[in-house]
Design a protein around this nucleic acid. Structure first.
Lengths: 214, 214
DNA sequence: GTCTATAGGATGATAGAC
DNA sequence: GTCTATCATCCTATAGAC
């Protein structure tokens, strides 16, 4: 009896903690880290500022937990994607490229990922941690995946062999991520995203037509 | 006599106004608009907060003047660049591409341009004006220049005729501007920029080798 | 685990003397 | 054109009651 009561309290506490994080993600992604205050966060949750400090020692700790959780989510997504066996065949290699784009789009369309990606995009100029996540955990990791894919395609004889897969993956990653970035911003300004979504897939087609063998 | 004294005062006033703008650009580019306070700005200039309000009615007015001045500088740079007559010849078209990159690099390497570009990169998520400058005055304008260049190259028979110059310019602009963005961030973190500067020119070579006719 | 109360300082902006 | 003085509000964070 007593124990179950304690559990309920713990659960409610856990719930408050998660609601604080959720509100912080919402507000940081809208106003930036500096622009969103502890008052804003606790106001959104419906608790007093002092209650927040029962769960977190500082504002900085909150953003660091968010970053850590994002890095973890990124690693899990990558793992899930890599576990899918990809046998490259000439007739479906354009599909492979498309599927890779759809995977990226789906990943960054998840509310948590999109919001935190936005926070990192904003903060990377001032916050070294955000800068490093953007550089290493996002860009370099995605570029590496692309490079491996291109190398396999070249080995399979379906991509032009004279292309340097290293710099090709850099080009492709900058282009795709640039389009994603704009897509993400447009969504926040509640503007139409159909044109940029079309561009995404148009670009993949354009890219493929130029790199395919024959 | 009296008149010359008035002129001196006016000049000093003008000087103060410019020093405020210069300090604001420095601080906004380092800490962001929200992160840099009026106190920070006046402290850097060596005047009191109240003195700033003799020249500007609000913090917002300062950033708007900076944005307007940046847009103006961009238009002037573009004008200067376009006034150079470009006769496309097969043997120098790679040079043309290189020169275009050097023009962009030089432009964004000017302290004023680099700092304000950074402010706009940071603020475009929250500030619609910054978003529009980034989209229209920077990206779309640069992409349009690239597209014209590519069309001329195709017409001259030195670029592959089957390439769509529209989407090709989008790809090229995203890649080049992505590299510039990273270069700009690295400079602020006082990290080495030699690798990314090399990448810039390596990329142009890679790009050219793939689009040239023959 | 949540509250009231408050500390101690920063913020954007104004009034008015000189 | 610059200053002193000040306002009203916001900020992060803490102490301690319940």
């Amino acid at each position: 009896m007593l124990k179950s009561k304690v559990n309920v309290q713990e659960k409610r506490g856990q719930d408050t903690k998660e609601r604080i994080i959720a509100a912080a993600i919402d507000l940081f992604s809208q106003e930036g880290y500096t622009g969103a205050s502890i008052r804003d966060i606790t106001g959104a949750v419906g608790i007093k500022e002092s209650s927040l400090y029962h769960y977190f020692s500082s504002k900085q700790e909150i953003i660091e937990i968010i970053y850590a959780s994002f890095k973890n989510a990124l690693a899990l997504e990558r793992q899930a994607h890599e576990s899918i066996p990809t046998v490259i065949k000439p007739y479906d290699s354009y599909l492979l490229l498309q599927n890779n784009l759809i995977f990226l789009k789906k990943m960054f369309d998840k509310p948590f990922m999109r919001k935190v990606y936005r926070v990192i995009s904003m903060e990377r100029y001032r916050d070294k941690q955000a800068f490093e996540i953007m550089s290493y955990d996002i860009y370099q990791s995605i570029a590496a995946t692309h490079e491996i894919m291109f190398k396999k395609m070249i080995a399979a004889g379906i991509m032009k062999p004279l292309l340097d897969p290293d710099i090709l993956s850099i080009e492709y990653t900058y282009a795709v991520m640039g389009i994603f970035g704009d897509y993400n911003i447009l969504k926040y300004y509640e503007k139409s995203t159909t044109a940029i979504e079309d561009l995404m897939f148009e670009y993949v087609k354009f890219f493929w037509d130029r790199v395919k063998n024959i």
